[in-house]
């Protein structure tokens, strides 16, 4: 069995270091916050202008003036600050954000990512994704390995319009942990119920198995 969305988030949480400033995208990335151990001090940045995002509010504390980038009502954590969108993207573009986690429709073996547009079909926009992939010090992609038809989303070459060029170095999918190197995808860890060969079979882009490959540890 591939990993659940929660398990993907759980694995990504292990990449978050004490003292990090982290921006989490919508979907699976949002869940990562639930798995940060309390002994790590982490500040979550929300690109609409909040550094130090807290949990969802109690019903009585809901404030329409306090939302995250997914337009959800949130709270401000201790030590939080509010700022304009220009300051927010100065943090992001200026390389002050340690880690950004975002979803993808496709990633290819060169580290290109597509996650904002399906021509003629989906017209939503890139939001802050292009700035995030261009600016954050580290970008981790949280994604399903295959689309609904079973086709691999880890491609030889992205077919959809790009969000960023050669900017992805790490992917955590429901099949495993994959690094993107000049030699293509490298499988570092695989979902405990799968085998490295199974992950390879499910991947369209060029993938090699790391010599020290191991099953993912989720606890």
């Amino acid at each position: 069995m591939p990993l659940t969305r929660e398990q993907i988030a759980q694995r990504i949480a292990q990449e978050v270091e004490d003292g990090f400033v982290v921006n989490l995208g919508i979907g699976i990335p949002t869940l990562v916050a639930n798995y940060i151990p309390s002994n790590k001090f982490v500040m979550f940045q929300s690109e609409n202008g909040l550094l130090g995002m807290g949990p969802y509010p109690l019903e009585k504390d809901v404030d329409p003036d306090l939302i995250n980038a997914g337009k959800q009502t949130v709270t401000a954590a201790k030590g939080a600050s509010f700022f304009s969108s220009a300051d927010s993207f100065a943090m992001i573009r200026g390389g002050h954000v340690d880690l950004t986690v975002l979803g993808a429709m496709e990633v290819d073996e060169e580290g290109n990512i597509a996650n904002w547009m399906v021509p003629g079909k989906m017209v939503k926009g890139m939001g802050g994704a292009m700035d995030l992939v261009a600016g954050a010090r580290r970008v981790i992609v949280a994604m399903q390995h295959a689309d609904k038809t079973g086709a691999s989303k880890l491609r030889k070459k992205c077919t959809l319009p790009l969000t960023g060029r050669k900017c992805i170095t790490k992917i955590v999918s429901d099949y495993g942990v994959i690094e993107v190197t000049p030699q293509g995808f490298v499988l570092k860890e695989y979902a405990p119920d799968l085998s490295p060969e199974k992950v390879l079979d499910a991947t369209e882009g060029k993938m090699t198995i790391a010599p020290d490959v191991k099953p993912m540890r989720l606890a």
């Binding site: 690109e47 969108s85 220009a86 573009r93 939001g127 292009m130 700035d131 319009p161 790009l162 060029r165």
Partner: peptide, 27 residues
């Protein structure tokens, strides 16, 4: 892109006609 939009407003308001950014390169 959101950060470019913010900066385009900031630049316009600050009398800066243009600026360079890495956001969107190759897209």
């Amino acid at each position: 892109p959101q950060g470019t939009l913010a900066e385009r407003m900031r630049a316009g308001g600050a009398g800066i006609p243009g600026f360079f950014t890495a956001t969107g390169v190759g897209t």
